[in-house]
Measured scan of single mutants.
Amino acid sequence: MTEYKLVVVGAGGVGKSALTIQLIQNHFVDEYDPTIEDSYRKQVVIDGETCLLDILDTAGQEEYSAMRDQYMRTGEGFLCVFAINNTKSFEDIHHYREQIKRVKDSEDVPMVLVGNKCDLPSRTVDTKQAQDLARSYGIPFIETSAKTRQGVDDAFYTLVREIRKHKEKMSKDGKKKKKKSKTKCVIM
């Protein structure tokens, strides 16, 4: 069974824990209790493949930012979460993405942009803004509501699919490099 290491990042209060708990335990946590770091595991079937999701729910508070490099190193894919009623959390996505790329030393890291709290009427981040940002990053965008469960499975499952595509691409690139290195030079 394939294991996928997913990391949920975003500013404090955007609903990272609520999304994760909704996926794992099928219930909505409405009281806000700032996370330092929590880890969850769940076995699911995605596109006919049974897999184990190892999900790291991270601290959004700035005082825990020193811990970010460590979990970013171990993560295979990242859910970059903002709240649709919090423009600052949307603007912060850029910083999370840049930090992930720096730590992973790669421009090509599996990510999904997630606009959470889409059940709320007080939207300050337009869907088109988020779609445009995701398009500019070359990553999928999904709106979710941890409260109603809308888009929750889709967000995590899409990230797994992005990781699969990335692994497939990397193995193809690896095979191309191996083929090239088999060419021999004969000096007579």
Rank of each mutant, 00 (worst) to 15 (best):
L6H: 01
D47A: 06
T35D: 11
E62M: 07
L52P: 05
S39F: 05
K42T: 07
E49R: 09
A59W: 07
G48P: 07
K42R: 11
A59P: 06
D54N: 08
D30C: 10
V14L: 14
L56H: 13
E31L: 10
Q43D: 07
I21P: 01
G12V: 03
I21Q: 14
Y4S: 11
L19F: 14
V29D: 04
I55P: 02
A59R: 04
V44T: 11
H27Y: 09
Y40K: 03
V7D: 00
N26T: 09
L56D: 13
V29Q: 08
H27P: 01
E49S: 10
V14A: 12
E31Q: 12
E37G: 03
Y40W: 11
D33V: 03
I24W: 03
V9Q: 04
T20S: 11
G15S: 00
V44K: 07
G10N: 00
V29Y: 12
G13I: 03
Y64W: 10
Q43Y: 09
Y4G: 10
I46Y: 07
Q25G: 10
C51T: 09
L23R: 15
I55T: 15
E3M: 07
D57C: 02
I24E: 03
G12P: 10
R41Q: 01
L53T: 10
F28K: 02
Q61W: 04
T58K: 04
V29F: 11
E62H: 10
I46K: 07
L52Q: 12
Q43L: 08
E37D: 11
V7Q: 05
E31H: 06
A11Y: 07
T58I: 08
S17L: 00
I55E: 02
Q22W: 11
S17E: 00
V45P: 11
I24S: 10
T35E: 15
A18I: 05
D47R: 05
I21M: 15
E49I: 05
H27N: 13
P34S: 15
E37Y: 03
A59D: 09
E37I: 05
K42G: 05
T2G: 11
D30Q: 08
K5A: 02
Q25D: 06
T2R: 13
L52S: 08
I46V: 13
N26E: 12
R41M: 03
Q43H: 12
Q25M: 15
T35A: 15
A11H: 06
A18L: 02
D54L: 02
L52R: 11
L56Y: 12
V45W: 06
Q43G: 09
L53M: 08
Y40Q: 03
E37L: 04
Q25A: 09
E63Y: 04
V29S: 07
L6M: 12
T35P: 06
G12H: 08
G60N: 15
E31D: 12
F28E: 03
H27Q: 14
Y4L: 14
D57H: 00
G10T: 00
Y4M: 14
P34G: 14
Q61V: 09
Q22C: 04
K42D: 05
T50S: 10
L19D: 08
P34C: 14
A59H: 05
P34D: 08
D38V: 02
N26D: 11
E62I: 07
E31P: 09
Q25L: 14
V29H: 11
R41W: 01
E49G: 08
G48M: 04
N26Y: 07
T58Q: 05
I46T: 11
S17N: 00
T20V: 06
K16T: 15
G48V: 05
Q22G: 14
G15N: 00
K16E: 05
F28I: 05
L19P: 00
A18K: 02
E3W: 04
T50C: 09
V29I: 12
G60Q: 14
V9C: 06
C51G: 07
Q61F: 08
G15I: 00
V7F: 02
E49D: 11
K16F: 00
